[in-house]
Design a protein around this nucleic acid. Sequence first.
DNA 1: ACCTGAACACCGTTCAAGT
DNA 2: ACCTGAACACCGTTCAAGT
Lengths: 196, 196
Amino acid sequence: MRNRRADVVERALDVLDRYGLADLTVRRLASELGLQPSALYHHFASKQALLAAVAEEVLTRRPRRPRPDAWDDRVRVVCSELRDAVLAYRDGAELVATVHAFGMGASAPGRELVEVLEQAGCPTPLARTASRTLLHFVFGHAGDEQAHLQAGSAGAIPNDVRERADLLGPDDFASGLDLVVAGIASRLGAPVSGGR
Amino acid sequence: MRNRRADVVERALDVLDRYGLADLTVRRLASELGLQPSALYHHFASKQALLAAVAEEVLTRRPRRPRPDAWDDRVRVVCSELRDAVLAYRDGAELVATVHAFGMGASAPGRELVEVLEQAGCPTPLARTASRTLLHFVFGHAGDEQAHLQAGSAGAIPNDVRERADLLGPDDFASGLDLVVAGIASRLGAPVSGGR
DNA sequence: ACCTGAACACCGTTCAAGT
DNA sequence: ACCTGAACACCGTTCAAGT
């Protein structure tokens, strides 16, 4: 059976969603494709490169929403889209965060945030700092949500994970996001238009 | 050679700092201790449990600084201590963040932050949301710093990692932290005393 | 209490060779 | 261009047995 790069990435997304990042293995992916493990090295230089391509695909598939006029609402939409994108696949947050942290891709949302913030009047250094702070929040929050899901599906749930269960979710995400947005606004001397 | 639990954790910290989290392996740690891999399962139920103990030790060893009076300065001190703690060992941020996300420990800083924020007048749900947002920032920022260090010591540095090099470090940390603290303050209707 | 020895079911990666 | 087959140097974990 002959595969193209895109076919491999497609299958990798399937394996990711069904078995999780820890079990998205070169050997497992190969066997799902009916291939020898070594065959994957025709398409990707390394497992890291494979994961970078998968992370990029996770972001590419996110449904895009219209961009509001107010800078703070734009920030909220970009961050919510990113959250939706990484939550759409099991362990998506950890995958995308790792690829991003190692500078191997997944940089589109960060670039859009910097753009939005500069148009809002942020000097470039502040725009970059604020953009990264927003990304840390989105990846961290989505990662917590997915870690909790995983702990739930595997039997034993540690105490403080269960305690946090009701805190996670879209409302808490919006609430935390508002915190960071309000901080940017205060630094900017600009008013916050939307909120929730 | 006979070892106690604490000896194993001590050695694990040494291996972590010298080889990184990916190479902190049950087999490698055992061989550094002059043991068979299976011997470690006398001290720890699993590698996860070992890592949880190591993460806890990283936090325990952090030098404590005096707590200022103003709530926002207290938040800044707690977060800076946490940053110092995880930066003190190679891949410390990733290790502690992972253990924390899976609810296996490393929860002391989060608990202190909730306490500080409640004393500042935050209702409990806001205190929890703000605390987790602060932790996401600290872990994310410190993780970026260490990822960059690692990329630097390994040969090739991708473009956007190098671009971010000058942005990371204590000043950028303080700047991002101020963003989140200002956001909490605005939500709280409270004034920000310190800043940097 | 602490450890050995052996086994089990896995990893990522390389490389010559095939079609 | 895409893949096989075989090898290399590894993983975490279990378990009976030793001291």
